[in-house]
Design a protein around this nucleic acid. Sequence first.
RNA 1: CCCGCCUUAACUCAGUCUGGCAGAGUGGUCGGCUGUAGACCGACAUGUCCCCCGUUCAAAUCGGGGAGGCGGGACCA
Length: 320
Amino acid sequence: MINVKFEQVMSNVEEAVTEDELAALLDNETNITAYAGYEPSGKLHLGHLLTAYKLMDLQSVGVDVIVLLADLHAYLNEKGTMDQIRDWADHYQKCFSALGLAEGTRFVRGSDYQLEPEYTKLILKLARHTTLNRARRSMDEVSRNAEDPVVSQMIYPLMQTADIGYLNIDIAVGGIDQRKIHMLAREELHSMGFKSPVCVHTPILLGLDANKMSSSSDNLIAIEDSPESIKKRIQSAYCPPRTVGDNPLLQLYRYYVFPQFKQVELERPQQYGGPICYEDFSTLELDYAVGKLHPLDLKNGAATYIERIIGPIRSALRSD
RNA sequence: CCCGCCUUAACUCAGUCUGGCAGAGUGGUCGGCUGUAGACCGACAUGUCCCCCGUUCAAAUCGGGGAGGCGGGACCA
């Protein structure tokens, strides 16, 4: 029984820190609160969806969820002016509502509480306890312009730590790029009398060109992309035959298609063997590894199923 | 506060001394080869030369002023 919950939360995650604490939490506690924070800047894309799915997994096992629209974090991390970020935050809230999070999801805007005196005091206290090197290293995977960091980017991890304490978070969800900040939070919050969060980290997926996913290199699928755009992007994605490592197409199946569909049917010309059906990712992966499944068939199927995932989100967004 | 260096295509940078069509590599787009992509081959496009003022027939280049970044020095009762 416990294992069912635990396995659900652990599915497709890179790591949980720690698994024992997570299991104990799910086993013994009620009124558990999990959160993920997002910098409102740039289009929402499949990468964001991965942590959103994890929040939904948590909701499905009875955990309360907070989505933090981290507007001040975005500002500190040089993502735009306050005005631009406010607009993005409005948009993000609509997008997340369209994703299908459970009723009762709490949306919180960072600026709603991060300017309160008590919060500020907590930041200063954290600043007093954190070395510059530690703060800087914690931002390595998170900040743009890694050389020439600004002081605001050193405040960022302190605020993220304070958020977890302030919002009384039990489970912090984020990509594995958040790891060092979360480890800082676990350490500092504990010594300041707050709960240390259990951290659940999702993988950071490759972009469609097998390089690091980034909106600037345009190698990702945004939730607002048109069906045509999705198809075109997937068509041009990197996909070496019989290769399962660092294959962005297989990632789409593993992290998006199979978690959402029990049965995956791939169309295929009769000439190459006709339609083929899979019920789990590992079977598909194996067929691909041995060359039983051609990259183009993989791509055509991915385009169909990714559109089936994104289509409803797109229309929910439009009807709003 | 003082001194030195840097700022040119999406990125990394040549070019500045000695003024004369705005350059290379990487990346990008298109095509060829593949039942996909990549690789490979071929073609194409890059632009506020950080900003302002001046000198000049002509300024990325010279002069003056400014902005941003980097490094050092000084200050430290």
